[in-house]
Design a protein around this nucleic acid. Structure first.
Lengths: 233, 233
DNA sequence: GTCGACCAATTGGTATGACCGCTTTGTAGC
DNA sequence: GCTACAAAGCGGTCATACCAATTGGTCGAC
């Protein structure tokens, strides 16, 4: 072979990843571009096809390249699901301060509630109402309640008509689900959620953005309160 | 070998990725957990070590597992840089509606400006002021102006004391940089930015949250206006 | 008994070479 | 000019071998 096998500190494949990543980040490689064949790329970087494929798998995992068998390697745009999944796991597994997560949620959802009141359609409003019915019916079933609660808030973000908000909110779920479980076992919190949700539904249905924002702010404030008191004891 | 080599539609390695990913997403595998050795995992999934390693590289690319040579495979939490990079590329390469991106920016930054006024320290405030000086001095150098502009807004999010806001704002840059370039070549926009930034600095330094929010809202509204008029012609 | 040094087994990283099946492309035949 | 088919190209997988780093246990010195 050309050079000595020297794993040493860093992986050969990581150099390839770094090289291609740089070219993607600074825009020299754009989605849709075709990459040279694996065997050529391997020669170009002076590594074996094995190492080269490791690098490709890494980039594929990042959602930056895709390969169809028989055809070649193509640079691709990061899919929304991939971005959401990554952000979701980041928020879930780094035990960030709940206040930080809640603050982001508050900012996004209060605005989304207002936007939903302005831009939401009647059909989605019905789904929103149905989601709250489901929450009411969930009773002791915490998992069901959590799912219904999330679905309600997700629908609000959908009604806001901005896919980025929906993506962020869905990702935020990663940092919220634990607290949601803690809260919704409380009878009082469950009841509060049903009532607040109803107020939000009413405001959105009436296209009253101010009322929708106020109702959402009030609701989230209560949610934070339940967590806060639970944390203090 | 055990079974026929049937690439067909889906990759063998993708099944492994899907399997482990499911276990990570539903929490059966948590950060810090050690995975069996590659040779054992390969046998467990009925694939060769090559295919197994493809799957591992994919998950490594997602930031979900890390491997040290000699030691084993470990499940890891998604690093903030990884989440930011992914979100950045998603926002940059999916040509989303600029209004959507701007709306998110507005919501986040207006709030961040208020929070910065309440929680920011004096030293970072000086850096903020310095960033605006740099913007003023940038003159015709668009790249330098864009960098200074971004640094200013980044510092505001840092002063807000919520790392999630900083992460989101940095990612948002992916969807904004193109418009920033378009705007900052305009003399009027450049001047507006300098003045608005100064108003923001003053409000933050005076710990006047309401004024900071108003100044930021005004600034972003102007930014949107420059883009909007440029788009109409 | 404790601690340090040392050795062997384990583990990930890379290389090589060989097939398979799909895709693409070029060409021959109509 | 168009279809049909064959060949070349490409990614996906497997098997095997070896390297370097880590790990864990053993054994000796104190």
């Amino acid at each position: 072979m050309a050079e000595d096998t020297a794993p040493g500190e860093i992986r050969r494949s990581d150099e390839v990843v770094a090289g291609l990543l740089r070219r993607i980040l600074d825009g020299r490689l754009r989605p849709g571009d075709r990459l040279p064949a694996e065997r050529d790329l391997a020669a170009e970087y002076g590594v074996s096809r094995t190492a080269l494929r490791e690098a490709m798998s890494n980039l594929t995992g990042r959602g930056l390249i895709a390969s169809r068998g028989g055809s070649g390697l193509r640079v691709t745009a990061v899919a929304p699901e991939r971005a959401q999944e990554t952000l979701f796991l980041y928020l879930r597994d780094n035990d960030l301060d709940y206040r930080s997560i809640h603050e982001v949620r508050e900012v996004i959802e209060v605005h989304a509630a207002g936007a939903a009141a302005e831009r939401g359609d009647a059909e989605t409003a019905r789904l929103l109402s149905a989601a709250n019915d489901e929450l009411r019916a969930s009773g002791e079933d915490v998992a069901r309640a959590v799912a219904a609660d999330f679905e309600f808030h997700r629908l609000v973000s959908v009604m806001a008509g901005n896919e980025i908000f929906s993506l962020l909110l869905s990702s935020l779920r990663g940092g919220l689900i634990r607290v949601r479980e803690h809260n919704l076992v409380l009878r009082a919190a469950h009841r509060e959620a049903c009532d607040s949700h109803q107020a939000i539904v009413d405001a959105i249905t009436a296209h009253d953005a101010d009322a929708a924002r106020a109702a959402m702010a009030s609701h989230l404030s209560a949610v934070f309160g339940y967590w806060h008191t639970a944390e203090q004891r």
